[in-house]
Amino acid sequence: MLNQLESQYSESLAALENVTDSESLHAWEIKYLGKKGSVTLLLRSTGQLPAEERANFGKRANEVKNLLFEAYAAREKLVAEQELALDLEEGALDVTLPGRERPAGGLHPSTQTLRQYAEIWAEMGFQVYRSRDVETDEYNFQLLNFPPHHPARDMQDTFHTTEPNVILRTQTSPGQIRAMHELGENGTQPIRVILPGMVYRYEQITSRSEVQFNQVEGLAIGHNIRMSDLKGTVTEFAKRMYGDNVRLRFRASYFPFTEPGMEIDVECFLCGGEGCRVCKYAGWLEIAGSGMVHPNVLRNGGYDPTIWSGFAFGMGPERATMLKHGIRDIRYFWGNDLRFLEQF
């Protein structure tokens, strides 16, 4: 009997060595350790042995049983690990196949740039003031110091409407007058606003010119607003927009509603000022027209120019967006081709 036990023990251990999956492990268990398993049956037959052999055999049989259960448990763990590894391998995907699209919405690039402008200017206390698209000649030109037939009007080709003296605004500047009237309380309150909005020009539509585009104009009026403040404020804006190391250039220029007037250039951020196609090899990009508010414009807004002063600037968000992303055709903006919009 003891011999039989020992041979079953070694046979079952050898068999366990060959078990590689849970199915054959289960079969092994039934064969040796199940209710009718050979080892179980041997154990059960202890009673049939002569009494003097019983103790010895029983002790060994229990030992064998425990050893086999241990071996089984160890094997089970191994098999489980192997099987998991196999499963994971078989479940592997081609990770290079494309994922399921989850089409996102998105803001129009002009809105994105306008928001960026508004956010930066808001931090400097400039709030958004919006005004109408269809304007009178008076607000768009005369109150801004463009007399009728003045050559300065040649700078802006105008869409006239069939209603005399009603035009599509050529600039957001008429909003300066409207803001002064609405917020200035008869020239007694300081003002700090930006005026974003669509403006219209009588132009042929080409890759470089459009009949409508956004402008963001800024206006600050106070008792102590100076050209140095204009320079400093726009410089702060440019740092936020183009990075801390940005370099600006201020050039004398002319707008009827400013005196002095100036153009502001930023060092080309594409070539670092070395000269490239975008900056036409000059190293500079125009970012804003600006100046001190003309005394006549202050007066037209209800302010006494001897004690109030102000600055104004105007920027083109589409142009800025084009420069930033290397967009070569301004017609993309109102073409609304989804293949363009989806790139933002």
Binding site: Q189, A220, F250
Partner: peptide
């Protein structure tokens, strides 16, 4: 113009709305 200093507006902040 480049020689004129850059300053930050010292004037009072207008009423916000």
């Amino acid at each position: 113009y480049d020689n004129i200093p850059d300053t930050i507006i010292a004037d009072a902040m207008p009423p916000q709305w």
